[in-house]
């Protein structure tokens, strides 16, 4: 027995989830094709502003996915993922505006930097659980704008004014506008990262992460290295959220310290809870939720959208603790039962 799940190392990567065991190949293909069409349709259906909003929703979904890896699957509550989002955004912005790098080359750098920072934060986080960790990461997120504005780094970060950058131009052979191109780029990168995360979670590592979350003592007794798992989970999670930050920098074409306040972290947390904790699909719902629900809240009450937003959050926690993904799961389960009986 080489791993805690009882599978030999080599086999562990094979898909084993119970849910998909019965899905035939043609159905899966159909699902993927449907997903691609659904993702590309907005290119023609939406005009520029709404396409931008959708781009931002996908970016937020990616950031929520990062948070879900460490908080949802590994149980380490982080209220500071806005910090990683900021680090990613600033990596891309600094490399593009100070060194004239092309956007594509900034991505691996931003990924590496965010993973390193995540690893560094994950280390003291080992000493903490639950609410302590939440408050420490909260402190980190509160400190971010101050650090970005500080004199020592002002030459790089542009201080309070921030940095301007330019969207990458679409390649000549594609008849798309820059807005459409950035949407395509964001959706493709997000799709790849969602797929990789899904693969990570359903394999041996994912199960180890969940085992550490649900019963650390038992997991340790089964031979899992909890400290290493937790710090690595933080690193991977920071990487994913950081890439989302990089994407947001080019999509908005601007970064400034005051766009990375504590409310980014709170937004990501709310998105995770609303979409569905420990759910890949839930992260997607979360991204849509955090982008569009504040608008709804604002339309209900112009004066105090935060009040409506907070009430929606607490209401969701009370009536739908597993988020939209959980709701969907229950609905499909009911449909399936109805269909077979």
């Amino acid at each position: 027995m080489s791993s805690a799940t009882g599978l030999p190392e080599g086999v562990a990567a094979a898909p084993v989830p119970v849910a998909e065991a019965g899905t035939p190949a043609w159905q899966r293909l159909l699902l993927v094709a449907g997903g691609v069409i659904l993702a590309l349709a907005p290119l023609w259906l939406l005009e520029s502003f709404h396409l931008f909003q959708l781009t931002m929703a996908v970016i937020m979904a990616l950031a929520v996915l990062g948070l879900n890896i460490v908080t949802g699957y590994n149980g380490q509550i982080s209220l500071g993922h806005g910090a990683f989002f900021a680090v990613g955004a600033y990596c891309t912005a600094i490399l593009m505006s100070h060194f004239d790098w092309s956007f594509w080359w900034t991505l691996p750098v931003s990924a590496a930097v965010c993973a390193t920072v995540g690893f560094g934060i994950g280390f003291p986080a080992l000493r903490l659980a639950g609410h302590y960790l939440a408050l420490t990461t909260f402190a980190l997120a509160v400190a971010v704008p101050q650090l970005l504005k500080h004199k020592a780094v002002e030459d790089w970060t542009g201080g309070v004014q921030g940095l301007f950058l330019v969207k990458p131009d679409p390649p000549a052979f594609l008849p798309v506008t820059p807005d459409q191109w950035i949407y395509l780029v964001v959706v493709s990168i997000a799709a790849v990262l969602f797929f990789l995360t899904w693969n990570l979670i359903r394999g041996r590592i994912g199960r180890a992460l969940m085992a550490t979350r649900d019963h650390p003592t038992a997991a340790e007794a089964m031979g899992m290295d909890i400290a290493s798992l937790k710090t690595k989970a933080f690193a991977v999670s920071a990487l994913v959220t950081g890439i989302a930050g990089s994407l947001s920098a080019v999509a908005i074409e601007f970064v400034a310290p005051d766009s990375f306040t504590i409310f980014v972290s709170i937004t990501l947390f709310v998105g995770m809870v609303a979409g569905g904790v420990a759910s890949i699909l839930g992260s997607l719902f979360g991204g849509l939720f955090v982008l569009f629900v504040p608008n709804i809240a604002e339309s209900i009450s112009k004066a105090a959208p935060g009040v409506i937003y907070g009430i929606i959050l607490i209401g969701l926690l009370f009536v739908m603790p597993d988020g939209f993904a959980g709701l969907l799961r229950r609905l499909t389960a009911r449909l399936r039962r109805g269909g077979t009986s």
């Binding site: 509550i77 809870v273 935060g306 009040v307 907070g310 959050l313 607490i314 926690l317």
Partner: peptide, 28 residues
């Protein structure tokens, strides 16, 4: 009281909700 026995994540969620509601209501 209703979430007394819920996991820590729920509590943190409720506190964050409270923070948003009270903070915004004060300003409003």
């Amino acid at each position: 009281r209703p979430v007394q026995n819920a996991p820590p994540l729920t509590h943190v969620g409720v506190f964050i909700g409270l923070l948003l509601i009270i903070g915004n209501a004060t300003g409003w």
